[in-house]
């Protein structure tokens, strides 16, 4: 075991997979010589060579489309989009091409592309360095969507994502890169070495896509969350005194509906937390699936705590970012009804 932050966990996963599979190549803006603006690919170009880890032109549509072409011709590309906010120039290539290639060719062609991209807020990045665009992609059949919440899961899930023969969009909550963050921005920033999930095996391991993780067991209420919100929820539950079960979804597509159902059959109550805006956010999908799978076990309406239906602001970031207080309030309300 080693202590790693999320950046090092990404780097370790990439290192292992580059070593293991000569068809894996990594590219994107500033990822080669420089090692990425968040340093996730640091040292990999000098270790594996310029043709395996390389810089790209500043063109997200170009990055994804060429990754698709490489995938068609036997490579297993891992593309980086520098910020999830800048994934949209590649939207057509992702949703119309990458996602549909297998289907439209009757299974003849496919491209095992992984797209890594830092997402989410909490870094004073304003609306173009803070977005959580996962729902655009969960809405597109053919794509898998993964969002880890700690270094240990990051490494195991990223290895699975790259080895998966389907395209995967892998969101990395950038506020968590250097340490867990529970939403209290006034507190001194923590590092991952204070957290059990900062312990990461140095060798190869994988975590299957589509399996949620029970972050905390509980009996009274189920909190569904992913990414940074796992840490916000954890602190909120601690402060609330409610014996809540926290499920870290880890993968939105495929979704571990069994784990969700099992938990709600036990607790009868559910609060969903995500950073992305509410309308058509992934919480809406979760809520619908829950009432389809375990409506008769529900003892209270499902509640969502999400970002507002506004762009992500800069100076008013902490009025937007779902806070512990909002999660606590939602849990209390759910317990009372």
């Amino acid at each position: 075991m080693a202590q790693m932050n999320m950046i090092q966990a990404v780097n370790s996963a990439l290192d292992i997979i580059l070593e293991k599979d000569s068809n894996v190549c990594i590219f994107g803006e500033d990822v080669g010589y420089f090692g990425g603006v968040f340093r996730c690919t640091d040292g990999l170009q000098s270790k594996y060579g310029k043709h395996r880890v390389f810089d790209s032109p500043l063109a997200e549509g170009g990055i994804v489309s060429t990754a698709i072409g490489m995938g068609i011709n036997g490579l297993r590309p891992v593309a980086e989009i520098q910020f999830a906010d800048y994934i949209f120039p590649a939207f057509d290539q992702i949703t119309n091409e990458l996602a549909k290639l297998r289907y439209r060719s009757g299974g003849e062609y496919s491209a095992p592309v992984t797209i890594r991209t830092p997402s989410g807020g909490g870094i004073r990045g304003g609306h173009y360095h803070s977005q959580s665009p996962e729902a655009y992609f969960t809405h597109t059949p053919g794509l898998k969507v993964v969002i880890p919440s700690n270094p240990h899961d990051t490494k195991g899930l990223l290895i699975s994502a790259i080895e998966d023969d389907d395209p995967v969009i892998f969101f990395e909550p950038k506020r968590l890169y250097n340490g867990p963050f529970d939403g209290d921005h006034k507190k001194a920033a923590l590092k991952w070495d204070t957290h059990p999930k900062g312990e990461v095996p140095e060798e190869y391991y994988s975590i299957p896509l589509g399996k949620a993780s029970i972050e905390r067991e509980g009996s009274q209420l189920t909190v569904l969350c992913y990414g940074t919100m796992v840490h916000v929820a954890r602190e909120a539950v601690k402060l609330s005194g409610i014996d809540a079960e926290i499920i870290d979804l880890r993968s939105l597509v495929p979704l571990d509906i069994d784990a969700i159902t099992k938990s709600i059959e036990k607790t009868g109550r559910c609060v969903i937390v995500h950073e992305a805006p509410k309308t058509s956010g992934f919480g809406g999908e979760l809520s619908a699936q829950i009432q389809e799978s375990c409506f008769y076990h529900l003892e209270a309406p499902i509640t969502r705590v999400t970002g507002w239906d506004t762009p992500f602001p800069h100076s008013l970031e902490w009025y937007y970012f779902p806070s512990q207080e909002r999660v606590i309030e939602a849990m209390k309300k759910t317990m009372e009804s």
Binding site: G125, G126, H127, Y128, H129, P313, H314, S315, L316
Partner: peptide
């Protein structure tokens, strides 16, 4: 701040000067 604190610094907008709001993308 005339853009109401919504953007990061240097993303000016100034209608009177015919300078159209600067975008990060």
């Amino acid at each position: 701040d005339n853009v109401k604190g919504r953007q990061m610094p240097v993303h000016y907008s100034w209608k009177e000067g015919n300078l159209v709001s600067i975008s990060s993308p």
